[in-house]
Every structure is written in C-alpha cells, then in structure tokens.
Measured scan of single mutants.
Amino acid sequence: AEEIWQQSVIGDYLARFKNDRVKALKAMEMTWNNMEKKEKLMWIKKAAED
C-alpha cells in the first residue's frame, strides 16, 4: 500500500524538492508515518484490488 501511495505522490514530492530524490523520499516516509489509519486504509484497499 505504501508503494502505491508513493508512486502516486512521488512527482509532487520531487517537484517540491527540486528533484532531490533523497529529501523527497525522506519527506514521503515521514508523511506516510504521520498519516491517519483511515487515510492509509484507502491505499491498502487500492493495493488489494491490484
């Protein structure tokens, strides 16, 4: 689920960090860890469908 979420937001994060992939990935990891369980559930369901 986290991978699907990352694939959907990586472009936004890379743009925000001027294509600094290391910073973008760290920010994504922090965002994922801070997400509410119900927000993650949507992505977990999406992962299950694929």
Rank of each mutant, 00 (worst) to 15 (best):
A1C: 05
A1M: 07
A1Y: 04
E2M: 15
E2A: 11
E2R: 12
E2S: 10
E2F: 15
E3V: 13
E3I: 13
I4W: 10
I4A: 10
I4F: 15
I4E: 03
I4D: 03
W5D: 00
Q6E: 04
Q6P: 01
Q6Y: 08
Q6S: 09
Q7H: 08
Q7G: 05
Q7T: 08
Q7A: 15
Q7F: 09
S8Q: 08
S8D: 06
S8Y: 14
S8G: 05
V9I: 05
I10S: 04
I10Y: 10
I10Q: 06
I10P: 00
G11P: 05
G11T: 13
D12Y: 09
D12P: 03
D12R: 10
D12F: 11
Y13G: 00
Y13P: 00
L14E: 02
L14D: 02
L14K: 02
L14H: 02
L14N: 02
L14G: 01
A15Q: 10
A15D: 08
R16G: 03
R16A: 10
R16Q: 10
R16C: 10
F17C: 05
F17D: 01
F17K: 01
F17W: 07
F17V: 02
K18R: 11
K18N: 15
K18S: 12
K18T: 07
K18F: 13
N19A: 06
N19S: 07
N19D: 10
N19F: 11
D20R: 02
D20V: 03
D20T: 01
R21W: 13
R21D: 04
R21P: 07
R21V: 10
R21N: 06
V22L: 11
V22H: 09
K23W: 03
K23F: 05
K23G: 09
K23M: 14
K23T: 09
A24F: 02
A24N: 00
A24D: 00
A24Q: 01
L25S: 05
L25R: 07
L25Q: 10
K26H: 11
K26G: 07
K26E: 12
K26C: 07
K26I: 11
A27L: 05
A27M: 08
A27G: 04
M28A: 03
M28H: 00
M28F: 01
E29K: 11
E29S: 12
E29P: 00
E29Q: 13
M30P: 01
M30C: 08
M30T: 11
M30Q: 13
M30N: 12
T31W: 05
T31A: 15
T31V: 12
T31L: 06
T31R: 08
W32H: 01
W32A: 00
W32Q: 00
N33I: 11
N33G: 07
N33F: 10
N33H: 10
N34F: 06
N34A: 11
N34I: 05
N34G: 08
N34C: 09
M35H: 01
M35T: 01
M35D: 01
M35W: 02
E36D: 15
E36A: 11
E36T: 14
E36F: 03
K37G: 12
K37T: 15
K37N: 12
K37D: 15
K37E: 15
K38H: 14
K38D: 15
K38G: 12
E39T: 05
E39W: 04
E39C: 07
E39I: 06
K40R: 06
K40A: 02
K40E: 02
K40V: 03
L41T: 05
L41S: 06
L41A: 12
L41I: 07
L41P: 01
M42G: 09
M42E: 13
M42I: 15
M42N: 10
W43I: 02
I44D: 05
I44V: 08
I44M: 09
I44E: 15
I44Q: 12
K45W: 07
K45H: 08
K46F: 10
K46E: 06
A47E: 05
A47K: 03
A47M: 05
A48I: 13
A48Y: 12
A48P: 03
A48S: 11
E49T: 12
E49D: 10
E49A: 11
D50A: 15
D50E: 14
D50H: 14
D50K: 14
D50P: 07
D50N: 15
